[in-house]
Design a protein around this nucleic acid. Structure first.
Length: 162
DNA sequence: AATCTGATTGTTACA
DNA sequence: TGTAACAATCAGATT
């Protein structure tokens, strides 16, 4: 049962038709120490959805850009239904973009990261055993810490000379 | 039916 | 320090 082992091209026959000969892209993992093979968690949250409160990792600038790119890509390529197509196209475009272009995306990603830290902290707290013999300074109030940090910071003041 | 896969890069987390 | 896996997406594919 190596359901999780599926090579870059094994079961699916749509995009998996790609030649696995020199595809070095799909080998991000198992680069030199596959001995452990002790994955901390499942690969997707779908299966390991045991903790619905667990915050997902912050999307990287690339992913933030991808979300927008996907719309555009699908709009111009409504026939393309392969996720890999957008991934590849987005990847190349991303590399083609200048850091100045990625800047706004990185800024967005930075916010996600900040929120993630906050969420993960709260998540850790919930996991921790609150029943700790000690003096707690009125910690939990209603065990319902809903996020409420909606701040729109637009720091765009850098366009003058050209 | 529900889980899983592929592909991109970045980022996070552990040893 | 470095590796390893996951973050979204979408429709097919597999269990």
């Amino acid at each position: 049962m190596k359901t999780t082992k599926g090579k870059a091209a094994a079961r699916s026959s749509k995009e998996a038709l790609k030649p696995v000969d020199d595809i070095k892209v799909g080998k991000r993992k198992a680069v030199s120490k596959p001995e452990k093979s002790s994955k901390r968690q499942a690969k997707k949250e779908k299966k390991a959805k045991k903790d619905p409160n667990k915050p997902k990792r912050p999307l990287s600038a690339f992913f933030v850009f991808l979300e927008e790119f996907r719309k555009t890509f699908k709009k111009e390529n409504p026939n393309v239904k392969a996720v890999s197509a957008v991934g590849k196209a987005g990847g190349e475009k991303w590399k083609s973009m200048s850091e100045a272009e990625k800047a706004p995306y990185e800024a967005k990603a930075a916010k996600k990261k900040a929120e993630y830290e906050k969420l993960i902290k709260a998540y850790n707290k919930k996991q921790e055993s609150p029943a700790d013999g000690g003096d707690e300074e009125s910690e939990v109030n209603d065990e319902d810490e809903e996020e409420e940090a909606q701040e729109e910071e637009e720091e765009e003041d850098d366009e003058d000379d050209d």
